[in-house]
Simulated scan of single mutants.
Amino acid sequence: MKPIRHRDLLVAFLGAGIVAHLVVSLTYGTLPSFPAPAGVTLGVLGLAEAVAGWILKGRVERRSGSKPVEPLVAARAVLVAQASAVGGALVGGLWAGLLAYVLPRASTVTAAASDTTAAVVGLLCALVLVGGALWLERCCRTPDDPDEQRRDGGSGGGAATR
């Protein structure tokens, strides 16, 4: 299994941001206001994935007192991490597109001022999700992957599932 490319996440983020900005600019007057805590769920998921990564890292490295990770568990964790990273990039792009539209209007339009807060919270929480997902994916790499040793010059840290 190959690690997710950061370039793919950036393309998803930018694409979703452009689409969101276009849709919001065409329909902003008809949209309901966005609640400020709307994106908090993504941040909570990101923190949960970071904690899961920290726990799995100890098990993958076979630290004393921890039981080894079954390969299927590591593969599922990597799949969840990759899906979360893409989902977080897409939703982050949506929040960024909204933010790009409402931020310049926040001083003159009352609704845009409150939507700016929601967009900032949503964008930050989406970035937390992407960060937690990338950390979880990285924690599932085994220290003895020969492909990773070639890329890193022998330092180890390959994917837990190949």
Rank of each mutant, 00 (worst) to 15 (best):
L134S: 12
A113F: 15
A106I: 09
R138E: 13
G132H: 11
T116H: 00
A133R: 09
T110W: 14
E148N: 03
A118D: 07
V102T: 09
L99F: 12
Y101N: 13
V130G: 09
A118M: 09
G131R: 04
A112T: 05
A100N: 10
P143M: 07
D144E: 15
W135M: 01
S107D: 12
D115W: 03
L134I: 01
E148T: 06
P143T: 09
A118T: 07
S107F: 13
S114A: 06
D147H: 10
L129I: 10
C139K: 08
A112E: 13
V120E: 01
A118Y: 00
A126S: 10
D115A: 01
L134V: 08
R105I: 01
T116E: 13
V120Y: 13
V128M: 00
A113Q: 15
V128K: 03
T117S: 15
C139F: 12
R105D: 08
T110K: 15
T116Y: 14
Y101S: 07
A118R: 05
R141K: 10
A119P: 11
L129P: 00
C125T: 06
T110E: 15
A126F: 09
P104Y: 12
L98D: 11
Y101F: 15
D115M: 07
T110I: 11
G132F: 10
W95T: 04
V120C: 05
E137W: 00
R138F: 06
G97D: 07
A100D: 09
A112V: 09
T108Y: 14
T108G: 14
A126W: 06
G97F: 10
Y101W: 13
L103R: 10
V128S: 00
L124C: 06
P104R: 11
A112H: 07
V102K: 05
C139I: 08
R105G: 04
V121T: 13
A100P: 07
P146M: 04
C140D: 12
D147P: 07
